[in-house]
Design a binder for these strands. Structure first.
Length: 262
DNA sequence: ATGGCCTAGGATCTAGGA
């Protein structure tokens, strides 16, 4: 069983890439972030032709997440509120960043964590509030679903070796100590980094800035993750980053990360 | 280098990304 995560930076701009990738990489579930399209305009038909059911949670212009699945998912939920309630969640569901569903006994949570803009900004405070809410959400889910695959664009590189050059990291968005600590707090509910089950090296990245020819120079960051509950990490077989789509013409700035289970 | 590029929306620029 394979689950992949991929921030496509607009599903309409990346439709050919997504369908081409699925044809050579027929994963069971593909988790998309930054679809940037309302549900009515999501290109559902292109994926149903390939045998995928699309569960979509979009908005105009920004954010947006989707689950593409080769079989129907149970208990599909949109946002934090179905688990935590509207009173707790407040404005954190206004941006469409969370979708989840059950494949057999594996509950798959697909996240687009807020970027945060810059350390100390209003958006950074929103990111930290969002991560605190995420911790409560995942803790609640774990009581019902022991096999949890939490994946997506986390917009955080957890360790210095997840960045091509960690100089100045304390002040940089995606690597500042406070947001790293917030993510570690989330993981403390009982989640492990799926990639690190198989690989301890630095130099493995999932995102490269469009500017400065960062991909060609391998100036990347590992910010797209699969986090696994203890029950599920025992069944993990591999976690790989597919660099190929990042080499294609007009690529997303992110590339897929694939988790495989027994 | 408060730089470099890309997307959507709506319009020849701004917001947001990371």
């Amino acid at each position: 069983m394979k689950v992949a995560t991929w921030n496509v930076n607009s599903i309409r701009s990346r439709l050919d890439h997504a369908t081409q990738w699925l044809q050579t990489n027929p994963v069971d579930v593909l988790c998309l972030q930054e679809t940037k399209v309302v549900n009515e305009t999501f290109p559902t038909a292109a994926f149903s032709e390939l045998g995928y059911i699309a569960y979509i949670h979009g908005q105009k212009s920004y954010n947006g997440v989707a689950l593409l699945s080769r079989q129907p998912l149970d208990k599909v939920q949109y946002g934090f509120a179905p688990v935590l309630g509207e009173d707790r969640v407040g404005d954190l569901d206004d941006q469409k960043r969370v979708i989840a569903g059950l494949w057999d006994d594996i509950y798959i949570v697909n996240l687009y964590v807020p970027n945060g803009s810059s350390v100390g900004s209003e958006k950074y405070e929103y990111k930290l509030r969002w991560l605190a809410c995420l911790k409560e959400y995942l803790a609640a889910l774990l009581t019902e679903h022991p096999n949890l695959n939490v994946c997506g664009d986390f917009n955080i590189a957890l360790e210095d070796k997840d960045i091509y050059n960690s100089e100045g990291k304390e002040k940089h968005i995606m690597s500042s100590p406070t947001e790293r600590e917030a993510l570690k707090e989330v993981m403390a509910v009982g989640l492990k980094d799926g990639f690190r089950l198989f690989n301890d090296e630095g130099g493995h990245f999932s995102w490269w800035d469009y500017r400065t020819a960062a991909f060609q120079r391998n100036m990347g960051w590992r910010i797209d993750h699969h986090y696994l509950s203890a029950g599920l990490s025992d069944r993990a077989l591999s976690c790989t980053i597919d660099l190929e789509p990042r080499r294609w013409e007009k690529p997303s700035d992110h590339t897929p990360v694939i988790m495989e289970y027994a």
